[in-house]
């Protein structure tokens, strides 16, 4: 099992940013997700976020909504998410789960933290859990020995950033723009300022997500952030491929482009 700390130490030693890839469990199929995430790791992703598919993905754009919808239609359950984590962690990548709060709440916070740790997961990203409500989750995660990653946004005040960063272990997730997930033509100018502001409140690594869709954009973000997070652009390649093999090839090729980007 690779820890987030080890990932960022290694990246720093190589004078580059870490590459973080996102994919929902159960997409395009239950096994297909493990294969695609494995391809992402082989192409150079240091960290994989496995999305726990949820019926009401409030902060996701059309691409991830589409993937999540297909995953749920495939009958994906939390046991499948944990199996996916297990499969991906086996590749040696640090594996996190990104999840809206309600499924964890329903499953039981303590039980989820424990089961995720047993599956080889190293932590969670919880986009709709704010510090005000996060107490019990942070406690359960600490007990299970997994990291808790929360988000800051361009609209966050310095006071909010300090409060969120204080709840984070592993890294801080900086949402590059005001909006939902999905690749954009250019990376928001707000991202660099947010990373700077976040750094003044924490010594944790700061990773940037939302809107990154090319090697050039990854290079741009890597110049000021500790990690570059890419989700929708990977999913787009799977959605657009005529079959699963072509999808895997496209994911691999795109992963290499990003891996090269974070090393520029």
């Amino acid at each position: 099992m690779t820890t987030l700390q080890a990932v960022f130490e290694k990246a720093r030693a190589e004078d580059r940013a870490a590459l973080v890839g996102y994919l929902p469990a159960g997409f395009p199929t239950k096994d297909g997700a493990i294969a695609a995430a494995t391809a992402m790791v082989e192409a150079g992703c240091d960290v994989i976020e496995i999305g726990l598919p949820y019926s009401d993905p409030l902060m996701d754009g059309p691409t991830i909504q589409d993937a999540v919808h297909r995953s749920l239609a495939n009958g994906t359950r939390i046991a499948d998410v944990l199996r996916t984590v297990e499969g991906v962690a086996r590749t040696g990548a640090a594996t996190l789960v990104m999840t809206y709060w309600n499924p964890v709440d329903r499953y039981g916070a303590e039980r989820f933290a424990r089961d995720l740790a047993s599956a080889g997961g190293v932590g969670t990203i919880t986009p709709d859990l704010t510090p005000e409500e996060a107490g019990p989750w942070i406690e359960s995660s600490k007990e299970a020995g997994i990291d808790t990653v929360f988000l800051v946004a361009p609209s966050s005040t310095d006071e909010r950033i300090a409060r969120v960063a204080d709840c984070c272990t592993g890294f801080v997730y900086a949402a590059s723009l005001m909006g939902v997930t999905g690749a954009r033509e250019s990376v928001s100018a707000a991202a660099e300022g947010l990373v700077k502001r976040t750094r003044s409140h924490t010594s944790l690594p700061v990773c940037v997500g939302l809107g990154v869709g090319s090697g050039a954009q990854a290079a741009e973000v890597a110049a000021y952030a500790d990690g570059v997070i890419v989700g929708s652009a990977f999913i787009r390649r799977i959605l657009d491929a005529p079959d699963e093999a072509a999808g895997l090839a496209a994911v691999r090729e795109f992963g290499r482009e990003l891996a090269e980007g974070v090393r520029r």
Binding site: W101, T130, L151, A153, S155, S156, V164, A175
Partner: peptide, 12 residues
């Protein structure tokens, strides 16, 4: 009640 929303919406 409470607030379970993306951090981006907290200031709003």
């Amino acid at each position: 009640g409470g607030r379970f929303v993306p951090e981006a919406l907290i200031p709003a």
